[in-house]
């Protein structure tokens, strides 16, 4: 895909009109998929077996595809061209394309939940991060197929089918390693303990989300939390892993407050596009 010319902007804070809320919401979802995909790709060629490298690369590709659709839609929303109406932010300008949001925003403009940016550790850590995410993404996209926003519903109808395969895959590993050897069980328990504090943020909601939930555009985080907990509780039980307590939950990702490691991730992801502005390949 062609890289766009630099036009560095940060995501606007949620404003009072509907276009701003929708844009914020769409970018949050696009960032969640893009950042997790980027972490998976960092691990490429380091999986325990060749088949797993192929699997994770394909999962990452699905996630990038979902974020591309969301970023493309974000560009239309920002330009005021969304079917939901809303005043045009700047009708004279061309909509930003998908690359704008991936390559030309600073790290602090990304609004993904902290879970998906957590640096890769061992494979237990990577696949636990994936599972905790997929257990959210599956009911999320399922709910979004009923969104009153036609574009989001269409993206969801594709993503829900892909995500079913992702969840099946990551859950299978959680059970296999949790209920595996003494060492694999130990590593899985460490992974679950260290990532648990980032799970609450997946269901956080603010004014942006609440308004869109009322309009039927966004999925209700409360419903998703129940579905997520069912999936996770049953998998951890099957994996003979202990479910951690909910103390010390972290958040801030959706407001651009990220870890130091995140800046390196984004810096690397954007390096080619920024070194060769306007190049296409």
């Amino acid at each position: 895909m062609p890289a766009t010319m630099p036009a560095e902007t940060s995501t606007e804070p949620p404003d009072s009109d509907g276009t701003g809320a929708l844009l914020t919401y769409v970018l949050r979802q696009g960032d969640r998929s893009m950042v997790l995909a980027q972490r998976l790709l960092e691990n490429l060629a380091h999986s325990p077996e060749l088949e797993e490298d192929m699997a994770l690369a394909n999962v990452a590709l699905d996630l990038i595809g979902q974020s591309r659709l969301l970023y493309t839609y974000a560009g239309q929303v920002e330009a005021g061209g969304n079917a939901e109406g809303g005043s045009a932010a700047d009708p004279s300008s061309q909509p930003h394309d998908e690359d704008h949001y991936a390559y030309w925003r600073p790290d602090t403009a990304f609004t993904n939940p902290l879970l998906v940016e957590q640096p890769n550790g061992d494979f237990a850590h990577l696949i636990t991060r994936q599972f905790l995410h997929d257990a959210f993404a599956a009911p999320y996209w399922q709910a979004m197929t009923a969104s009153t926003d036609n574009t989001l519903a269409a993206i969801a109808a594709k993503a829900v089918k892909e995500t079913a395969y992702h969840l099946r895959h990551s859950r299978g590993w959680v059970v296999r390693l949790g209920d595996g050897t003494e060492e694999s069980h130990r590593r899985m328990q460490v992974a679950v303990e260290s990532l648990w504090r980032f799970t609450d943020e997946l269901f956080e909601h603010d004014d942006v989300e609440d308004r869109l939930v009322r309009q039927g555009v966004a999925a209700d985080p409360a419903t998703l939390a129940a579905a997520w907990r069912d999936t996770v509780t049953s998998a951890l039980a099957e994996a003979t892993l202990d479910q951690p307590s909910d103390a010390h939950m972290r958040s801030g990702g959706r407001y651009g407050r990220h870890s130091e490691a995140f800046s390196y991730l984004i810096g690397e992801m954007q390096s080619v596009a920024r070194a060769h502005p306007g190049a296409s390949w």
């Binding site: 088949e51 192929m54 699997a55 690369a57 395969y165």
Partner: peptide, 13 residues
Amino acid sequence: RLGDFGSTACKAP
């Protein structure tokens, strides 16, 4: 079955 994803996302080995 050897894996969940093959040479492309649409296939399994």
